[in-house]
Design a protein around this nucleic acid. Structure first.
Lengths: 218, 218
DNA sequence: CGTCATAAGTGGACGCTGTCCACAGTATCT
DNA sequence: AGATACTGTGGACAGCGTCCACTTATGACG
């Protein structure tokens, strides 16, 4: 028979078209899910399209390549990390300018970072696995965005300097060593060589790192 | 025609067999080459076999899977890093026990680490991209090996403690924060978000990190 | 309101990858 | 010398990223 069945051609050959941008957003969300479960390598384009319920090629209407999709997923993962850091800082009570509170905020930001790396290893790895380009927090602040890990860290360090905990002349550029320790610890104890350490040892290392930072501020 | 040509069956169907272990070693060497050029993801089994001049399946006589090959490559990359650290330390003159020399050795070890990360980004990434398992330097020293990054770092820190530069009560476990700063810096300024910083800024960061470490030792 | 360009979906194909199976020589051990 | 393990080959499969040709719904414009 030549005449098609009761279902219209539109129904058979073209899945109901979704609202504007829905497929793109869905792909990123699916990619985020995959990244959460298996890191950046698990972000496979065809699987993402399957989750959205669309044919593989549809992805190419929204991303030029798999790498571009991955870049979007990375950005999303990084934003989630930044948000958790902000939330951690926000939970700390105490006036701005209070030295003790400022110290606690610095601790909170580091803790949030490490917690994220441990609770969401896949997302954490993905956040730093961007395939090319892109400035997170521009090295020289400037026009940059504030919803970024580096931005949050800078804010807290500024507060520490204002409160007199951190000497003014040591403030400049110190965000990088501080970021490095925490990031390094997260990487080494996460997917790195120091993974599968007993939790006790891990917390001991956290403590060590904390005092390591404190010592270098004074 | 049914009768085969002048070339013997052995020649046509089976390439000259290589000496014992040559294929395995060749595969690791080829993998190392690929990793050097493109990081862990570039270590593709079929390409490695092609470089060795053997059919893809031959690899499975020596490795259970691509991941196992990658693990061997990772171990080799890590060993190269460790060797460079050792070489860097060895270049520093000065008696064991001399505080100034000990300090210089600590600097040298960090510099070697960072230099390796920058001169061989692919190998560096590969060294820390092992797909599973394995203890590099066992967390609690013990039976471990000494030809490992952590081992070298520990040796230098022990010397610093013996020389009185590093307080005894702060020696325990301090290798981890120290390793973390350097590793974190290497990752962030390497493939991480702080890549493509001008060289001047990079060296400034190196300097900052050095003083950061020094401050926290005293 | 009708026309029409364009965006957004489909189907099919290609080359590449990791991996599995069956087979064939070679090396080694008794 | 003969049995047996070892190491290489050939062919196949599914899954991946990507390209091309085609169709249709959507939105802008006269």
């Amino acid at each position: 028979m030549i005449v098609t069945g009761s279902r219209s051609v539109a129904e058979t050959r073209q899945a109901r078209r979704r609202p504007r941008g829905a497929v793109r957003d869905g792909l990123v969300a699916a990619g985020l899910e995959l990244a959460r479960a298996g890191g950046p390598d698990a972000v496979v384009l065809r699987e993402a399209t399957r989750m959205v319920g669309v044919v593989p090629n549809a992805a190419y209407r929204h991303f030029a390549s798999r790498d571009e999709l991955l870049a979007a997923v990375c950005a999303a993962a990084l934003r989630e990390l930044a948000d958790r850091m902000a939330a951690g800082v926000a939970r700390v009570r105490g006036k701005r300018g209070d030295p003790a509170a400022a110290r606690r905020r610095l601790h909170a930001i580091g803790t949030a970072y490490l917690d994220f790396a441990r609770q969401e290893p896949g997302l954490f790895a993905t956040a730093f696995a961007l395939p090319q380009q892109q400035a997170y927090g521009a090295p020289d602040g400037g026009t940059g965005q504030e919803r970024t890990p580096l931005g949050h860290l800078r804010a807290v360090l500024d507060e520490l300097a204002d409160a007199g905990v951190l000497q003014r002349r040591r403030r400049d550029g110190i965000e990088y060593p501080v970021w490095s320790v925490v990031h390094g610890l997260a990487v080494l104890t996460g997917q790195g060589p120091l993974r599968d350490l007993p939790d006790g040892t891990r917390h001991h290392l956290d403590e060590l790192t904390r005092t390591f930072i404190d010592e270098s501020l004074a």
